[in-house]
Design a protein around this nucleic acid. Structure first.
Length: 704
RNA sequence: GGGCGCCUAGCUCAGUUGGUUAGAGCAUCUCGUUUACACCGAGAGGGUCAGAGGUUCGAAUCCUCUGGCGCCCACCA
C-alpha cells in the first residue's frame, strides 16, 4: 500500500480506535501472581462537554496505561462518570430558569428523574469524547457514581460508620444559603471583600464592636482575650445587652483578637461559627433568631419576620434613639457568599450528619508517613499532611435532590434515627413505631466519591477487587487534593484496611499562551474536541504533555498544537522514507551486518539506547514532559536530520554498507514507534500497520 | 493570620543527590526551489539564573534575609 504524502489524523483515528476497542485490547489480561497496574479514572462530570483540562489528565493517564501495558503488565484503567451533586443540579436549574421554571415547580421524584435523563444524554456524549481523545480504558468496567451497586456500597459504608460510632447527628452552625435552601461546607463558601460598617454598642460595663447589630438578641455572653491587659479584669463581670436589657456574663477566650474593635466580642453561638465554638467551650445556651427562610424569629415583636438586613437597620435606629450606639466606622472585610448564587451566607444552626474524622485522618496520615502512598511532588505530600492534621469533623449532609439520599429515618414517636444499609426499615429500631420519615438530605458528593477506588472495583466483581486493589496510581487535579484525595484515603483505609492507591499523581491547570487562566469570559477557551478535529488527537496530546512537568500548570496555544501536528507529519514521512528504501531489504540480524556498521550507524544506535533509558525512566517517574521531549528530539533531530540524511546517500549510491544502513533504519524506526506510542498512539499504530508486524502496536512490548 | 509554591533567553518552560562553555520549544535573523517531509533543511543572535549576604575548592541548585508574583485554607466579630 502506498503511504499518503501527508499524515491525516481524520482518516485514521476513528478507525484505529474502533480496531482497538473491538479487539478488546483495553481489557487487562489477568495473570495471577503478577502485580497489575491499575488506574481508576477520576470520573468526569456527566453534565457537560469535556474541556481542555480533562484532555490533559486523560492523556496523562493514557500514557501511563499504554506504557505499562506495553511493559507486559496486566493493566486496567477504569473509566467513570460523576453525577457531581450540586454542580449538576446547579447546571440543570439554570436550564430550568431559561424555560421560566424553577426546581420548586416539581416534586422531589420528578425533579430527580428529569436530572437523571438530562445526565444520561450527556454521559454518552462525554464518553464518546474520551474515545476521540484515544483513552484506552476498559469500557466493560465503566462505572457511574449513581449506579445502584455503587449506591449500595455508599449506604453500607455509612451504616458501618454509624455502627462504629463514627457518625453523629449534631446541631451545628452551618453555612446556610437562605436562597438555595441549603447548607454548604466551608469549601463551598466564597469569601469576598466588601465595605461594611462596624458599630460600637454600649453593653454597660463594656463596649463591643459588631458588623451585625441585629444579632444582639441572640447574644449569650461577651468575651475578651484573657491576655488583654486593658479588658482582662472585666472577666467574671456582667454585661447588659442593649435594647432588651438581658444580662450576660463576660468570659475569657483566646479566640478573641486583642485590638480588634474594642477587644470585646459579643458571643452569638447560634449565628457565628467562632461564637459557636466559644459557646461550646463555655457551655453557653443557643438562641436562634434567624430562620431557614432568612427571617427574624424569637425577637421583640417589631423585628419578627424581617430580613436580617432590614432588622439591622431597625436595630441601629433604635440604638441611636437610646443613645447606645457610641460610634460607627468603616470596615473593609470579607463576607461569606454562596458560591452558586452569591447570596450572603447566614451561619445558622442546623441538624446535620457528621463524620468524626480524627481516627480516619490518623490512618491516612500514617499511610503517607509509611510511604504506602507517595506523591509525584513533595509539595503535595506536605499539603496532604497539613490537611490531615487540621481536619474538622466532616458534615456530609446536603440539602439537594440530586444525589444519594441518606438512608436515615426519623421516628415521630421517639424522635430517634434509624439507619440502614439502604433498605426501608418497617419500624423504628428504637421504639417500634412505624411513623418513620426518611431524611430529605443527600450525601455530600465527596462522601460517595471518596469511596470510588474500592467501590468501582468491587461492584464489578470480587475477583477484580482482590486483584486490582490497592490501585497503582490516582491521577487527578492538584486542586482537589484536600477535598477528594485525602477523603479517598480515609474512607478507603477504613473500608478495606489498605490505602486505595500507591501513588498519587497530581496535575496542574491548563493555561493559555500567556499563562493566564482559561475562562469563557476571557474568550481564551480551547475546545479539545475542536482541536482533535483540526490537528489530531496525538498532536493535542503532545502539546498538553510537552513543556511543563505534569504537577505544574502548562501553557498551551493553538500554535503549540499545530507544531505537534508537524511533528506527527515528520514521523509519518520518516516512516514513509524508510519503507520506500526497504523494498529490497530482508530483515537481517545485527550480528550478520555487525562489521558493515559505519560510525553513523553506531552513533544513532547508541543515541537510541540512551534515549530509551531516559524515556523509560522519565515515564516511570511521572516526568512525562521530559519523556516526550526526549523522544521528540531524538526522532526529529538525531534520527531524521542526521541519520536518515546519512543513510540516504549510502542507499542511493548502493554503498557496500547499504544493508547495514537499511538494517539500522528498520531497527530504529520500529523501536522509535514503540517509544512514541504512548505519546502518539494513533499515528504510531497507523504506521505500524504498514510494517506487517504480528501484533498491533498497542499490545507490542516496550523495547528493552 | 496559617499553609504551599514561583521568579532561569522576547514568550512558555526544563535543569534529578551542588561539578566543564546554563538547555528545549516557540519567536527573531541569515542562507537553501536537496524526489521522505516547505507541516522541510543548514546556521546565527539572545540569559549578572529576582536582589543581597553566607556555606563550599566549586552555587541556578544548600542556608539566611529582602523584593515581586501566584494558589489554597481561615474563627478579623
Amino acid at each position: 500500500m502506498e503511504m499518503a504524502k501527508a499524515y491525516s489524523p481524520a482518516e485514521n483515528e476513528k478507525r484505529i480506535y474502533k480496531f482497538w476497542e473491538d479487539n478488546g485490547y483495553f481489557k487487562p489480561i489477568i495473570k495471577k501472581g503478577e502485580k497489575p497496574f491499575t488506574i481508576i479514572m477520576p470520573p468526569p462530570n456527566a453534565n457537560d462537554n469535556l474541556h481542555i483540562g480533562h484532555a490533559r489528565f486523560v492523556f496523562v493517564e493514557d500514557i501511563l496505561t499504554r506504557y505499562w501495558r506495553m511493559k507486559g503488565r496486566p493493566t486496567l484503567w477504569v473509566p467513570g462518570a460523576d453525577h457531581a451533586g450540586i454542580e449538576t443540579q446547579y447546571v440543570f436549574e439554570k436550564k430550568l430558569a431559561k424555560e421560566g421554571k424553577s426546581r420548586f415547580d416539581y416534586d422531589r421524584d420528578t425533579l430527580y428523574q428529569m436530572i437523571w435523563d438530562y445526565v444520561v444524554d450527556n454521559r454518552n456524549n462525554m464518553e464518546n469524547q474520551l474515545r476521540a481523545l484515544g483513552a484506552s480504558c476498559d469500557w466493560s468496567r465503566g462505572k457511574y457514581t449513581l449506579d445502584p451497586a455503587i449506591v449500595k456500597v455508599v449506604y453500607r459504608t455509612f451504616n458501618k460508620l454509624f455502627k462504629d460510632d463514627l457518625i453523629y447527628r449534631g446541631e451545628r452552625v452551618v453555612n446556610y444559603c437562605v436562597r438555595c435552601g441549603t447548607a454548604f461546607s466551608q469549601l463551598e463558601v466564597d469569601y469576598k471583600e466588601q465595605d461594611d460598617k462596624l458599630y460600637y454598642l454600649d453593653y454597660g460595663t463594656v463596649t463591643i464592636a459588631t458588623t451585625r447589630p441585629e444579632t444582639i438578641f441572640a447574644d449569650v455572653a461577651v468575651a475578651v482575650n484573657p491576655k488583654d491587659k486593658k479588658l482582662g479584669s472585666l472577666v467574671g463581670k456582667i454585661a447588659t445587652i442593649p435594647l432588651i436589657g438581658r444580662e450576660v456574663p463576660i468570659i475569657a477566650d483566646e479566640l478573641v483578637e486583642i485590638g480588634f474593635g474594642t477587644g470585646a466580642l459579643k458571643v452569638t453561638p447560634a449565628h457565628d461559627a467562632t461564637d459557636y465554638e466559644i459557646g461550646q467551650k463555655h457551655n453557653l445556651p443557643l438562641i436562634s433568631i434567624i430562620s431557614k427562610e432568612g427571617k427574624m424569629q424569637n425577637v421583640p415583636e417589631e423585628y419578627v419576620g424581617l430580613r436580617p438586613k432590614a432588622a439591622r437597620e431597625l436595630t441601629i435606629k433604635r440604638l441611636e434613639e437610646a443613645k447606645l450606639l457610641t460610634k460607627t466606622e468603616d470596615l473593609h472585610h470579607s463576607v461569606g457568599k454562596c458560591y452558586r448564587c452569591n447570596t450572603v451566607i447566614e451561619p445558622l444552626l442546623e441538624d446535620q450528619w457528621f463524620i468524626k474524622v480524627e481516627k480516619l485522618a490518623e490512618s491516612a496520615l500514617s499511610a503517607i508517613e509509611n510511604k504506602q502512598t507517595t506523591f509525584n511532588a513533595r509539595k503535595f505530600e506536605k499539603t496532604a499532611m497539613h490537611w490531615l492534621t487540621n481536619l474538622r469533623d466532616w458534615n456530609i449532609s446536603r440539602q439537594i435532590v440530586w444525589g444519594i439520599r441518606i438512608p436515615a429515618w426519623h421516628c415521630a414517636g421517639c424522635n430517634k434515627w434509624t439507619i440502614t444499609a439502604g433498605e426501608v426499615p418497617p419500624t423504628c429500631t428504637h421504639c417500634g413505631s412505624s411513623k418513620l420519615t426518611q431524611d430529605k438530605d443527600t450525601f455530600d458528593t465527596w462522601f460517595s466519591s471518596g469511596q470510588w477506588p474500592f467501590a468501582a472495583l468491587e461492584v464489578n466483581s470480587k475477583e477484580d477487587f482482590d486483584y486490582f486493589y490497592p490501585t497503582t496510581v490516582m491521577e487527578t487535579a492538584a486542586d482537589i487534593l484536600p477535598f477528594w484525595v485525602i477523603r479517598m484515603m480515609m474512607l478507603g483505609i477504613y473500608e478495606t484496611g489498605e490505602t486505595p492507591f500507591e501513588n498519587v499523581v497530581l496535575h496542574g491547570l491548563v493555561r493559555d499562551k500567556q499563562g493566564l487562566k482559561i475562562s469563557k469570559s476571557k474568550g481564551n477557551v480551547i475546545d479539545p474536541v475542536e482541536m482533535v478535529d483540526k490537528y489530531g488527537s496525538d498532536a493535542l496530546r503532545m502539546s498538553l504533555v510537552w513543556g511543563a512537568l505534569i504537577e505544574n500548570d502548562v501553557a498551551v496555544s493553538e500554535e503549540n498544537i499545530k507544531g505537534q501536528k508537524h511533528f506527527a507529519n515528520k514521523v509519518w514521512n520518516a516512516a514513509r522514507f524508510v519503507l520506500m528504501n526497504l523494498e529490497d531489504y530482508k530483515i537481517v540480524s545485527r550480528e550478520t551486518i555487525e562489521k558493515e556498521l559505519t560510525q553513523a550507524d553506531k552513533d544513532i544506535l547508541i543515541k537510541y539506547e540512551s534515549t530509551l533509558k531516559v524515556v523509560t525512566k522519565a515515564i516511570e517517574g511521572y516526568k512525562l514532559s521530559i519523556a516526550a521531549e526526549s523522544v521528540y528530539s531524538f526522532f526529529w533531530h538525531d534520527f531524521c536530520d542526521i541519520y536518515i540524511e546519512n543513510a540516504k546517500t549510502r542507499i542511493q549510491d548502493n554503498d557496500k554498507s547499504k544493508v547495514a544502513a537499511q538494517h539500522t533504519l528498520d531497527y530504529v524506526l520500529r523501536n522509535s514507534l514503540r517509544m512514541l506510542h504512548p505519546f502518539m498512539p494513533f499515528l504510531t499504530e497507523t504506521i505500524w500497520e504498514e510494517l506487517k508486524e504480528e501484533k498491533p502496536l498497542i499490545i507490542s512490548l516496550w523495547p528493552k
